[in-house]
Design a binder for these strands. Structure first.
Length: 408
RNA sequence: GGAGGGAUGCCCGAGUGGCCAAAGGGAGCAGACUGUAAAUCUGCCGGCGCACGCCUACGAAGGUUCAAAUCCUUCUCCCUCCA
């Protein structure tokens, strides 16, 4: 395909980014591609431990897609080599060691999910064990010799931990080096990553120079806040919206984000680009578009992107029905009541009903919820946790706003 | 090898013999309100056949004490400094 004029490409690529390092290099590379050179090789490193992609991951992936749409090639690097070793420090997010099978399994699920975002024709999935597992100790030492401790300590995170007397393992020093070497292995022209990857990306750039390659340009995308609006989106914090989730989940979780998050979500996670995006943000700013409407738009868009339009409409209708109007949802999971749980009168105490239906995690929790007025049977609030209930087919038990069960 | 410091509930972080199931914040949950699962406000936020009863709990195992997250011993892991 024909490349866009490089100026135009550059403008597009810069949108929604946080920082670009080596912009001159990027311009050079774009120009070269523009005048008939080979497409750029754009690198993105992936964590081999997280098989579920959430919309936070999609931020750099979407940027990658833009590159692809401009005719360039994506190189996704799975850091399986480092993943197999495991990271001994960073207690906060203890990385566990992965077996080869696990890595392969994760890679497969990745690939399925990528199809929703990237152009498979222009996507190369690469494992860094391909080269590192063949390395001799000497080669590792050579790599290590290219960098100094002082430069390593330039990284905020290291510097801070060093100052505070927190542990930094030598292995952690190797991570940026190895990740940086990946750029050399695939001859990357550009590397994408979140702002938290800045240091690692820079190491890649510097190492490329050491090894006599053209340094890659770095494009850093902002980190997406999680649905809690406090921490960055991550699976372990359970504040994420996964692209494999059901339309209802995606829609609902989106509606639950704080209004303050709207702008960043719209710019970073939707395919609204260029002038349209600028216009939309402006309208949002001066209240031409009320936040509620914007959030519905966002929620609909996200469902459309990862499912389809029909699903989006349905999700919206469901949402309005259940949460705005307080009606019962379309699909209520059916649950069976085991006869053993009932007493001789065919009754069961409310708290036990709730825990048997797995609608609460413990009897105590059930008790609390009932006392707080969060439990309803056939849409009628029940107030006594010990109340005897005679289960009947079709009876609807509701806990809070979101949990429903229909008895068989 | 030596000296010192630390490990607390989902996370951060107080607490140095009883008033501690453990302050405070965050997250989460419920309710009210709002035609948002937003914001705000209120409450909850170990378990148990549960209105002040019992059990489990402050890195692990023992011990002292009427009484321990808090004192002692050993152990595990971590950090700092000296060498």
């Amino acid at each position: 395909m024909a490349f866009l004029a490089w100026q135009e490409s550059l403008r597009l690529l810069k949108q929604g980014t946080n920082e670009i390092i080596g912009e001159e290099d990027l311009v050079e590379k774009l120009k070269r591609a523009d005048s008939g050179g080979p497409p750029l090789r754009v690198k993105l490193g992936l964590d081999p431990t997280a098989p579920d992609i959430h919309i936070g991951h999609t931020v750099p992936l979407r940027k990658m897609r833009e590159f692809q749409d401009l005719g360039h090639e994506a190189y996704l690097i799975i850091g399986d080599f480092t993943g197999r070793i495991g990271d001994p420090s960073q207690k906060s997010e203890t990385r566990k060691q992965l077996t080869t099978e696990e890595v392969m399994q994760n890679a497969r699920t990745y690939q399925e999910q990528f199809r929703k975002i990237l152009d498979p024709e222009k996507t190369h999935l690469v494992f860094n064990s391909d080269w590192f597992s063949k390395w001799t100790p000497e080669e590792f030492l050579t790599l290590a010799s290219k960098y100094t401790v002082a430069r390593m300590l330039e990284r905020d995170d290291f510097e801070q931990r060093y100052r505070e007397g927190k542990p930094i393992s030598i292995l952690e020093f190797f991570y940026p080096l190895l990740q940086g070497y990946d750029s050399i292995a695939i001859k990357a022209d550009v590397e994408l990553g979140g702002t938290d990857q800045k240091f690692n990306l820079l190491v890649g750039r510097q190492l490329q120079k050491e090894y006599g390659q053209n340094p890659q340009a770095l494009i850093m995308t902002p980190l997406l806040e999680g649905t809690d609006g406090v921490q960055k989106m991550s699976k372990s914090l359970n504040n994420y919206i996964g692209i494999n989730e059901t339309p209802g989940e995606i829609y609902g979780k989106t509606m639950s984000i704080s209004d303050d998050l709207l702008k960043s979500y719209i710019t970073l996670t939707t395919d609204l680009r260029g002038q349209k995006l600028d216009q939309y943000l402006a309208d949002l700013e001066n209240n031409k578009i009320p936040p509620l409407e914007a959030k519905k738009f966002l929620a609909r868009r996200l469902v459309e992107m990862y499912h389809d339009q029909e699903a989006a409409l349905k999700a919206e209708q469901e949402f309005t029905k259940v949460f705005s109007r307080g009606n019962l949802p379309e699909d209520i999971p059916e649950k069976e009541i085991d006869g053993e749980w009932l007493n001789e009168n065919g009754e069961i105490r409310l708290v036990h009903l709730l825990s048997h239906l797995e609608m609460v995690n413990s009897n105590s929790e059930g008790r609390r919820l009932v006392k707080q007025g969060g439990v309803y049977i056939d849409e009628e609030r029940v107030e006594d946790p010990n109340q005897a209930i005679k289960p009947q087919a079709g009876m609807i038990v509701r806990v809070g706003k979101r949990k429903f069960s229909r008895l068989k």
